[in-house]
Each structure stands twice: as C-alpha cells, then as structure tokens.
C-alpha cells in the first residue's frame, strides 16, 4: 500500500439515469481520474441521507461529491433545492463532528459529462490533498 492519504478517498453519489451514465462514459472513453473515487448510484440526489455522508467520513473517506442531475432531474424541478438542503444539513453534522464543510461538494453531471466529471474529480482530489496539510 502507498502511504496513507497519498490519494484522498472520495465517495461519489450519482444518479441511475443521468450522472451515472456520464461517469460510465468517462471509463468508456478511458478518461482517467483518481482511482480512490468510489461511486454509489441512487435514483435521485434528493434521496441522499445526511447520515450516509457522515458515515462515509467516519469510515475514513476524505470527501463526498454529489453528482446531481440539477435541472435535468426527471423527478422534480425542486431536486436542486432539496439536494442543497441535504448538503446544508450534512455540513451541520460534519461541523459537529469536526469535519471541514469543504469536504463535501456538488455539481450537476449530465449523461455525457465524461470530461467534466473527470475534471471535478481531479480538482476535488487536489483540494482535499491541500486540506490535509
């Protein structure tokens, strides 16, 4: 094993219909990003429970990234608003547990957003690595 935290570990929540296919496409096109990125796909980003996010940090993840559908969400136009609320609640939980709120990020990832996803992962990896120091 490499030295601990040489690559910050990131948990991504994606969505079955939109952002997960976008992430798949990055692989399909061999667009590389950090291999310490792990993805859990859900029906919609507005269904993420803050307790899962806290659980990830407690289990040693360095960052959580929400690959949301944004305004493309087919379930509800309120999706961005509700997802934002989940992030805010999670940040409160994170602060209570001494975790920097900068360790959670969100961006809309579309079903063909292969490059944007990879570059979000690269940026977030860099930001988390700097936070570590």
């Amino acid at each position: 094993m490499e030295k601990k935290h040489s690559r910050p570990k990131i948990l991504v929540f994606s969505t079955d219909k939109i952002s997960d296919p976008g992430i798949d496409q990055a692989g399909l096109r061999k667009i590389h990003y950090s291999p310490a990125v792990y993805v859990i796909s859900l029906p919609c980003s507005s269904g993420i429970k803050p307790r899962w996010i806290l659980h990830a940090f407690k289990q040693g993840f360095d960052g959580v990234f929400i690959a949301a559908d944004g305004h493309e969400c087919s379930y509800s136009p309120r999706c961005p608003e509700l997802t934002n609320r989940i992030i805010e609640e999670s940040q409160v939980l994170m602060k209570e547990n001494g975790i920097s709120p900068k360790r959670i990020r969100m961006a809309a990832i579309c079903s063909v957003c292969a490059e944007p996803f990879a570059s979000h992962m690269n940026n977030f990896t860099k930001i988390l690595a700097e936070l570590e120091e």
Partner: peptide, 29 residues
C-alpha cells in the same frame, strides 16, 4: 416513483427506498 425525496426529510428516519436502505448503503460504504 421511488425517487427517495421523502427519505432524507423524515426526522424519525422512518422512510427508505427498497434496495437503498441504510443497511445497504452504509454496508457499501
């Protein structure tokens, strides 16, 4: 529709979506 929007807003954590329960997601983590 199984979107799950209702799950995080529940103060008692009394709702989940089949295949996406706390045990399943936290188990994955």
């Amino acid at each position: 529709k199984g979107c799950g929007m209702c799950a995080p807003v529940c103060p008692a954590d009394a709702i989940d979506i089949a295949q996406y329960s706390n045990a399943e997601i936290e188990g994955m983590i």
